[in-house]
């Protein structure tokens, strides 16, 4: 029987939901890199992003989860789908999926994976198990205060970056300016 969530107490179903959501994330990641059709890849990526938003919720980061849904799934992925429709698909369907150096790439990636495993096995003690402080109720407010206080400069630079990206995208994609 599930009980009301007390501060400082973890919900009962955490373990189940963690494995479900992370499994979905990884499975959709596999689909993204193996599907022949880019639209299927994009679809898989969307599901992965949503599952990841669920993981953020489990980490008591509702604001990041909301931003993930609204920006990634609702914004960036629509852009991707839009572009996939604009570029020719039929040819890429019949072509080879992987490039010629795929063996090298795979070996390099696996080496990176081994590195990760070694780091995590050796450095396990560095990541102590600690329950999240339940700041869920004011998470958004605190992030807002941080963004406009401590990280003001970075925030302004991010806006500049977006401006540059807008201009760059227009310059690159438009035939005649």
């Amino acid at each position: 029987m599930e009980q009301a969530i007390q501060p400082g107490m973890q919900p009962v179903a955490t373990t189940f939901f963690f494995y479900l959501l992370s499994g979905l994330t990884l499975l959709s990641g596999v689909f993204v890199i193996t599907r022949k059709n880019p639209v299927h890849s994009a679809l898989a990526l969307i599901f992965g992003l949503l599952a990841q938003a669920g993981l953020y919720l489990m980490l008591y980061a509702p604001f990041v989860a909301g931003v993930q849904i609204i920006l990634y799934a609702g914004g960036i992925m629509v852009l991707f789908l839009f572009v996939i429709m604009l570029v020719n698909l039929e040819r890429s369907q019949r072509e080879e999926r992987f490039n010629k150096q795929w063996v090298v790439g795979l070996v390099a990636a696996v080496a990176l994976g081994v590195l990760f495993v070694v780091v995590y096995v050796k450095g396990k003690a560095l990541f102590p198990y600690r329950i999240a402080q339940p700041l869920e109720n004011s998470n958004t407010q605190q992030i807002g205060v941080m963004l406009y206080g401590q990280y003001m400069f970075a925030f302004e630079i991010a806006s500049l970056l977006l401006l540059v990206a807008i201009i760059g995208a227009v310059v690159m994609a438009k035939k005649r300016i």
Partner: peptide, 11 residues
């Protein structure tokens, strides 16, 4: 690592 594999192997 899935992302890295995708970047390195897909065309």
């Amino acid at each position: 690592i899935l992302g890295v594999i995708g970047v390195l192997t897909r065309r």
